[in-house]
Design a binder for these strands. Structure first.
Lengths: 341, 341
DNA sequence: TGCGACTGCTGAACCGGATAAGTTGAATCG
DNA sequence: CGATTCAACTTATCCGGTTCAGCAGTCGCA
């Protein structure tokens, strides 16, 4: 009834534990005949290696960790993370690695999780999401010598390699497109201001607006939730100067913004053009369908996982660039009804 | 540089390994003075227990497993799972248990994952989602003596205890509400037909329609994706007999259905009333906001996690009922414009 | 004063594998 | 034919904790 061990196999096969271990691990030191016999017995009695025993003998945990720090309310609704996770998973399960997931309330809790995971040797490395400016997690993982990959962030931040995407170019492309349509009052509803990629996008937005003579280009920071997206939109549309186009930092806020515009009696795209950064099915479900910056998030996650596994294996890894988000024009963008300069 | 072990602590404190172990685990057998000294040293040199070493000495893995079997495309977009996971997490992290997550392509892969996790003693128990009729996973976990809790499913199915919600009553309430508004042609866009809860809902729907004299009540099965929800809606609205109300098995399909209705020139709720089973922010973001059956999914997940931990601790657990989904009327339901019998 | 009980510790075995080092016996070779 | 080499094992040790048996020393009590 109790779980079989290699000692049981050894006894059955009439050899020593050592021989069984060699046989099961494909090491030389046993004859083909014996190996087959041992493998057959292992199969027959349903043997599985005890992961703890392996790990104790210096093996890796074969597990990577992912701690997410966003409130459940936002997490549940934002497709980004689930898509990221499924991409990571795809890469991991192909190499029979496991994923340890934890949702944490704040940065300190996240750091504690890393310390514990690594201290207890539960994971071999971690993926770090939502990089912040002077992020406290970076010195911690560096200090601990915990293999890590930053998911997102600008090109090459600090000592920890990252997987990044050129948000700046994507945003510039978007502003150029809107400007070409004739928009001169473009607002931006941004995400959390202390995230690195928010900062990168802000810089790109300002630069492009200046270059393209978009005179009025306010930015409002939010927490990425639909509620704040709606509130920001309401504020923008209630002011005396109204934008003719709004770029949202994620699709959830863009959809919420669309709702607000409609509720305020504005037509999209006639009175207001809307662009969403990140493109989930959400953008295609609403009417009008939203113009969005599309990226293959699962592929992004898979790339990050691959980099992390390489780092864990001890090879040096540098930062790599993922594909840039592509602008997919849909029904929510058009020239502004009244061209303004 | 190398990670400290209890042997290091023992040496520093001038006691034996055994004494250190007793001290660190709050066991009797050491004096208070010694215990404090040992704890101080452990703290000072940054000691963490090696989870593998603990597990090898018969301790639990302190980890529970969750395998999800839905395509990434659907998973990413459906808020249900992320909300469930955050609920599970909340319960687990409060008891410093970890969550092992894996996304699997099919039932066989899922069963393999369970076998491996349990065989390697990586998890102490698992949560089983999306129970199917004569589900192959049930005999497997029973056979393996792997502690498990089924998330969802009808009341008390088979040997594995579950956490269930009374979908039947919720659906009956919905049909009664629609019938009271005057609807006599109510369609249902269902989820995967071999899931238990789909079957339960189907039975409740048919029963209620019959009782309430809803003569025309077709059901179309889907895979829960927005695409299929849209297709089903298109089919329903293109037939010669049109429904005046549609109940969708999740919110994603309901939103897609709303889009289709609008694209076909129907007004909601004038020409068509829409009700969504499951209520994410999505339902409030679209226009008109969708009437939905609301449940606290994180709480549901937390309850499931709690039950599983109880089962793992060896206490007997039975099936428990979670709260029933509540109908929240919003702008997408109204009396049909032309009352029909 | 002598016995048992208790406290506070030590030493060693143990969990289930990995692996270095040692031991056979047979084949190879000069 | 004896020395060498090699395959095919066995034995022993290790990983880092837990736990049990044992053993001094102290205390209480008859």
């Amino acid at each position: 009834m109790k779980r079989p061990t290699i000692a049981d196999i050894a006894q059955r096969a009439g050899v020593s534990k050592g021989a069984v271990s060699y046989a099961l691990n494909g090491q030389r030191g046993v004859s083909e005949a014996t190996r087959r016999r041992i493998l057959a017995i292992a199969e027959e009695i349903g043997w599985n290696p005890h992961s703890a025993a392996r790990a104790l003998s210096g093996a890796a945990a074969e597990t990577i960790g992912l701690a997410l720090r966003r409130p459940a309310r936002v997490l549940g609704f934002e497709p980004f993370y689930m898509e990221l996770i499924s991409g990571v998973e795809a890469e991991l399960s192909a190499r029979s690695q496991a994923l340890m997931l934890q949702i944490v309330p704040d940065a300190d809790a996240e750091i504690d999780v890393y310390r514990r995971w690594w201290g207890e040797r539960r994971v071999d490395g971690v993926l770090i999401c939502d990089l912040r400016v002077s992020d406290p997690r970076i010195p911690v993982v560096t200090d601990l010598h915990l293999p890590a990959i930053v998911v997102g962030g600008p090109e090459g931040v600090g000592e920890v390699p990252n997987v990044w995407s050129d948000d700046a170019t994507a945003l510039v492309e978007t502003v150029e497109y809107l400007a070409a349509l004739g928009h001169r009052r473009i607002a931006r509803v941004a995400g959390l201001p202390d995230l690195w990629h928010t900062r990168v996008r802000a810089g790109a937005f300002e630069g492009a607006c200046e270059r393209l003579d978009v005179r009025w280009s306010p930015t409002i920071g939010t927490d990425y939730s639909g509620e704040e997206g709606a509130r920001a939109t309401r504020r923008l549309l209630s002011g005396e100067t109204r934008p003719t186009a709004v770029i949202y930092d994620n699709d959830v806020m863009a959809v919420a913004g669309l709702g607000v515009a409609q509720e305020m009696g504005l037509t999209v795209p006639g009175d207001l053009s809307i662009v969403a950064f990140d493109d989930s099915p959400l953008c295609r479900l609403v009417h009008p369908a939203l113009t969005a910056l599309t990226r293959d998030i699962p592929a992004f996650g898979a790339l990050a996982a691959r980099q992390l596994l390489t780092a864990i294996s001890g090879q040096p890894v540098g930062s790599v660039e993922d594909t840039t988000a592509k602008l997919v024009p849909r029904a929510s963008t058009a020239p502004p009804r009244a061209l303004v300069t």
